[in-house]
Simulated scan of single mutants.
Amino acid sequence: MSESLHAEVVAGVRATLGAHTQAQDAGRTDEVAALYTSDAVLEVPGLEPIEGRDALRQAFKGWEPTRPQLHLVSNTVVTSAGENEATAVSDVVFLQRGDSGWTAQITGRYVDTLRRSDRTWRLHRRTTTYQA
């Protein structure tokens, strides 16, 4: 893979992850669901895997914010990159604003597999783990 193609893949992956985070924190459920492939799988500790875009849309609808929140996704490393599939690992801190200000609720890690079709990168599988 050429350096320019690798850079393009990394930029596309990061753009998708950023768009997901911002849409989720704003409660834009349809935008979040559109960032997944139709057969995507989301694994969250304590839940059965959520499979398919429609099921993901319903899950994210149930998780729409009721008060200000932020998922701070950082340290993203693209661990495998191909022309149409890539994997990435990112750290995440979930903050929520309450009466006394912002507090960290969860820290964790995302392991993502993304696929590209029609020049658009979409999440195909996200596995979430929480840090103690």
Rank of each mutant, 00 (worst) to 15 (best):
I50G: 07
A40L: 01
D39W: 08
P65S: 02
T66G: 09
G62Q: 05
R57Y: 09
T76L: 04
D54W: 07
V73K: 05
P65C: 06
Y36V: 05
N84T: 15
V92K: 00
A86L: 01
G52E: 06
D54Y: 03
A34V: 08
K61I: 04
L72H: 10
G62A: 08
F60T: 01
A34G: 10
P68M: 13
A59G: 06
G52T: 08
E64H: 03
V92Q: 02
E48N: 14
V44G: 10
A34M: 07
T66Y: 05
W63E: 08
V78R: 02
V41R: 14
S38R: 12
G82N: 01
P45E: 03
T87M: 06
V92F: 08
S38P: 06
R57L: 12
V44L: 15
T76H: 05
D91C: 02
V73L: 14
Q96E: 14
F60A: 02
R57A: 11
W63L: 13
S74A: 11
V89D: 02
R67P: 04
T79K: 01
G82T: 05
L70M: 11
E51K: 14
E48G: 08
P68Y: 07
H71I: 06
T76K: 00
W63N: 11
V41K: 12
F60W: 15
V93M: 09
I50S: 03
E83H: 13
T76M: 03
Q69A: 13
A55L: 06
L47C: 06
Q58G: 14
G52S: 03
V93C: 07
A88I: 02
Q69H: 08
V78M: 01
V77C: 06
G82A: 10
E51P: 00
A88N: 00
D39A: 13
A88V: 02
T37A: 09
P68R: 10
G82P: 07
A81H: 03
E43S: 03
V73N: 12
